[in-house]
Nucleic acid binder design. Structure first.
Length: 261
DNA sequence: ATGGTGGCTGGGCCA
């Protein structure tokens, strides 16, 4: 079973690249972020023709998250769980795909340490932990895939000195990320791949991709019972090459077939 | 170079 998360940076602009990648890689579940479209124009039929059910939570020109699945898609929750104050933006959607609960998240960017958006980001991370607790127990099968806009360690940034006083690497953000993980989640790619300076995002500007100037800010966070089934985890940097790429690469994990339950 | 690129749009914001 292959599960992937990918910030597509506009599904309208990226539809050809996304469908080509899906055909080639055949993920069982794909979490998408930044679809940047309303629900009415989400290309559910295009994915259905490829064998996928889909669920989308969009708002229009910004944000927007989706899950597509070949292994079933039920129990869809748009926004945070009902017990949590809802977000005013379309940044989180959850569903049950096969025997795994899947969450697709687009964590707020934060903009700058002084910006209200940064406070919003930190509060959002706390709500995400509550959301996880609301929909699953840490002993259950759960994966949160998405663009977290946080680089957990300096190994996840090409040059941390370039980020002095910037978002994505600040201590409060890293603490919020660590606290989410402490609920009972592991950063699957990092657990499987200890080497530093492997990235999932590169700025479009300055030839950053060519120069290897990126960050690892997209994650699949899995509960221990889910991680126990992980065979490998990869970032497909080839998807960042060529015509009209997203600025993010897909992050995947392959699971062994589930135990009888 | 206080810039750059790309996607929303239809001027300027957001990332």
């Amino acid at each position: 079973m292959l599960i992937t998360t990918w910030n597509v940076n506009s599904l309208k602009a990226r539809l050809e690249r996304v469908t080509a990648w899906v055909k080639e890689n055949q993920p069982d579940v794909l979490c998408m972020q930044e679809t940047k479209m309303k629900d009415e124009v989400f290309p559910a039929l295009t994915f259905a023709e490829l064998g996928y059910e889909s669920a989308h939570f969009g708002q229009g020109q910004w944000n927007g998250v989706a899950i597509i699945s070949k292994v079933g898609l039920t129990d869809v929750v748009t926004n945070f769980a009902a017990s949590i104050e809802p977000d005013h933006e379309a940044r989180i959607i959850s569903a049950k795909c096969g025997d795994i609960r899947v969450v697709s998240v687009y964590v707020p960017n934060g903009r700058s340490l002084e910006d209200d958006h940064y406070k919003y980001k930190l509060a959002w991370m706390k709500k995400l932990r509550r959301h996880a607790a609301a929909i699953a127990d840490p002993s259950e099968m759960l994966v949160i895939g998405g663009d977290f806009n946080i680089a957990p360690t300096n190994d996840d940034v090409w040059d941390v000195t370039k980020f002095d006083g910037a978002t994505h690497v600040s201590e409060p953000e890293r603490k919020a990320f660590a606290e989410l993980c402490e609920w009972g989640l592991v950063d699957v790619f990092r657990e499987m791949n200890p080497e530093p300076k492997v990235f999932s995002w590169w700025d479009y500007r300055n030839g950053s991709f060519h120069k290897g100037e990126g960050m690892r800010i997209d994650f699949l966070l899995a509960t221990k019972s889910t991680f126990a089934r992980v065979e490998d985890s990869k970032i497909d940097r080839n998807a960042r090459k060529g015509e009209k790429p997203s600025d993010h690469a897909p992050v995947s994990m392959r699971l062994s077939n589930g135990r009888a339950k």
